[in-house]
Design a protein around this nucleic acid. Structure first.
Lengths: 111, 111
DNA sequence: ATATCTTATCGTATATTTGCGATATAAGAT
DNA sequence: ATCTTATATCGCAAATATACGATAAGATAT
């Protein structure tokens, strides 16, 4: 790859790609699903639900947190995570804007 | 990574992750944007619009096609690509179902 | 048949991701 | 202070992704 070319795209393109990347792994999808279903913020419960080592789950949580998809707070000896609904809304909205809106106009694709 | 663990997740989780992965690069977001904006199916025009070599763009197109996000057809000496709106609708719908629906119930997150 | 134009594929270098065990950190219990 | 419990981080190995030039393949024109 030599030199990254990612910087040559627009900020919005990079942001959408980063959002997608954060979800581009079944483990992270599964984590988000758990967090979405249980209103209570979870922590080590996730480790038990996933077929992965604790350190690996922690790494995935960190990635989701860095991407802004979830929030995390320390709760005594354990950590508590929640979905960041606002970030979700923002990105889903942008995707819809980019594609669904255009779809209405251009439904008849040529191939 | 030694052994892939992806297979240990549900098919739906894997599918959503694959969909997200296909969009997890600004170049592919940019390609989708171009295809969404121009109703005409494009080909080498994309190469001119992106800051990437022709072979790299071709590779990204292949990934999008493999993921089912775009369709491709040979048109004389050139290739013609279009967005697969149905796949888009399907995946966006699943994301909405997974997260937006739940959001209504659980808006008051604890962190 | 040859030349040209467009796109796909191959080979390869480098960067990033994924996963785990081991270890650190931090809070609470004994 | 020490032990346990929960979580984060480090270090490493293996797998994937990214990018490009070179080359192949296919269509059209000369």
């Amino acid at each position: 790859m030599a030199i990254h070319k990612k910087e040559e795209f627009t900020q919005k393109e990079q942001d959408l790609a980063a959002f997608a990347k954060a979800m581009a792994h079944p483990a992270r999808i599964a984590i988000l699903k758990v967090l979405a279903q249980k209103n209570e913020c979870i922590c080590g419960e996730i480790v038990e639900l996933l077929p992965l080592a604790q350190s690996t789950v922690s790494q995935h949580l960190k990635e989701l947190k860095t991407a802004g998809l979830i929030t995390g707070a320390i709760d005594g000896p354990r950590s508590c995570y929640c979905i960041n609904w606002k970030a979700f809304e923002k990105f889903m909205g942008e995707f819809s804007f980019l594609f669904n809106k255009l779809k209405v106009q251009n439904e008849k694709a040529c191939c």
